[in-house]
Design a protein around this nucleic acid. Structure first.
Lengths: 216, 216, 216, 216
DNA sequence: TATGAATGAGCTTTCATTCAT
DNA sequence: TATGAATGAAAGCTCATTCAT
């Protein structure tokens, strides 16, 4: 079983079983959508790459757009999964004395997730501007939920005097910009450069944390 | 003369004269490309919106892609214009004693530019992943040049002890993430929220600057 | 057992037994063919309406057209059944002294049959123009046989001086036009109008009979 | 200019000009629709028969259905044209002393029209059952208007004692059945038989008129 | 220069039919 | 016997591009 297959199994194979052909269709669609974009990818191309007849695609997904949404929806869910677990706050209190440790852990964890699902991440950020359904889902399910959780976290550490006194929204936005900025530059814009990943992440976190630390 | 018209005049009307029809075609194409993406926009749609015949588009632009490049190229040039003026360093030395002032001015200036060319900015960041020519241009003409200029600037202020000791690339990337992160969140992701722009920019710069300041 | 079921049993269940699924397929096909026409009805639609898998249809009927013919053939047979019984003439002589009574009885009987098989009648007249096999069957088995029988009847009553002296073909055609004209107007063209069926049939027969009566 | 061309010019070329290709498309569509039915005719087939590219069809008619409606609509208008001229009643009073002459003239005139537009007539009666728009148009514009006009005519001749005393609707329906019954039998069902057209029409009118004459 | 009719390749989707289970 | 996944040809329709006017 290839890496690709494992990823597909993990993301799409919840309860219902996927046939071999379905998996191949998904894999082919992900590859093409990521590379050329949804609009510029033809279903015949996907069929050819997946080694199935074109009709087979439409047996499983009523329309091309349904195929896109099938691909993108679980990615969104997994992206925020760590933040919506029930005992998020508890874990937080027990594990991370310092805000810095928490952010560092989180950045590492989510960066790793994005990197191991880079194609899906590409599709997500490339198609959100064009698909109103996606934009809506993103705002409603992702941005909102993460924001709600984080707001409390920020307040918590602000009370402890570990973070600068500032509206939580600004802190969250800045943190998100930092993560996405790194991942996009590293893996999408300049993947061919030589990166010392560990050091770069270290520096990035350092700047952010220092920026967020209370002024003396 | 509308805002749109002025923008088009400024960006596209260098030496050669544009006919009224050409301007309308450009305006229509920009609007549609920004909204639905290049691949999902048909030339017939552009023609209709511009109020010209389909053939007219191809009189001026050999292919649809040429139309896209015509639109995007000057945007790139203008985006980095302030950094490539000949006496960049001189201006710098004379005007900005502190790194903070320089960055603040720059962020304000470029943010303003992006905002007043938001549609073009959208097209730029949305199409770069799909058009290898654009990606190449971006890297060669934009990223590289800016990097070269900035590198010296960073070194200059590091020597003065105003910036943390760190590879310039990391500093630049972090700064760029910060600017783009703000503009994208503000104007593309959540434009409908109520923003106190001045304060938000102020906070953003503050975090960045604090993060970049040398540790004691 | 519904009306639909009874009709299907009566028309299709001659010697061989129909399974429950087969009946459902027939019922679904009849409904769809009548409503949208043979060509515009898809087998998947029939399968869905019948609650069976698509493959099941093709287990029982080799092709879609075979399904159509299976439906239409017995309808034709039943339509002319009264005219082809062996002792048609005997019955005629014994039962109907006057041509008028004969025609009235016939019109009532056949109208009733058509009305209680309206969907099949629709399919029949709608598909005959497009299916050469049907047209051939219709001419060979229906029109010809009825004509042969009727010719003698007409001659019989003409000899008795009860019908105008005229080629039998014209009389038959006119009679058929009258019946079909009524049924089509009543049930297919303007079914939603308020009809006093008994009176309308009475008037229709009256005009026809008066028209066919010998001139003084 | 062929017969076909003349017919197309007359029916479709009101104010706007039709290009040569458009005429060919109409002619090809009429031929195929009449022969195989709307649903069973493919646009590629029409294109091939018309000698144009398939795209050309859709340049002139947005959808296949629009093509059908373009073909059928003027046929309906022309079919009832004689009945909706402004001075219908005047013409009637001046020209036809007897109901019989009026009906005879009308039958001859409309039969001739139908015969010289037989393909369009076929399409009309074959597609009305499947196209709700057509059925609606037929009822609203054809049936209703003709009925309104005729009602008065019937009353007029009934007052003169030339027609049987009977609801106008029944008289009209019977008359229509007679006309359509003749045309359909003659040209659609049994066109290959040897017909003495003049005599057959004569006999048909005779039966109808005799049937409608007042009883003594 | 500008038009818009015409093209034909290619698009998404539907279809009747097959076949392994 | 019944299923429904799979097929691939063909459907209706859109597209970027050409060209005579």
């Amino acid at each position: 079983m290839s890496e690709q297959d494992k990823m597909i199994d993990e993301l799409f194979n919840h309860d219902e079983e996927l046939t071999e052909k379905q998996k191949k269709i998904l894999a082919a669609a992900i590859e093409s959508f990521a590379e050329k974009g949804y609009a510029a990818t033809s279903t015949s191309e996907i069929a050819k790459k997946a080694g199935v007849a074109e009709g087979t695609i439409f047996r499983h997904y009523k329309t091309k757009k349904e195929l896109l949404l099938t691909i993108v929806a679980p990615m969104m869910a997994k992206l925020i999964a760590p933040f919506v677990i029930k005992d998020f706050n508890k874990v937080l209190n027990q594990d991370y004395e310092r805000f810095e440790d928490f952010v560092k852990a989180m950045i590492e964890n989510r960066t790793k997730f994005l990197v191991s699902n880079m194609q899906l991440f590409r599709i997500l950020i490339q198609e959100i501007p064009f698909q109103p359904e996606l934009k809506e889902q993103f705002k409603e399910h992702i941005a909102k939920k993460i924001f709600e959780r984080f707001e409390k976290v920020i307040a918590h550490y602000q009370a402890k005097g570990q973070i600068i006194d500032m509206p939580p929204y600004s802190v969250i936005r800045m943190t998100a910009s930092t993560i996405f900025g790194y991942v996009i530059a590293r893996y999408l814009l300049v993947p061919e450069a030589e990166w010392d990943d560990e050091a770069e992440i270290e520096r990035t976190v350092q700047i952010l944390m220092h920026g967020l630390s209370p002024k003396k």
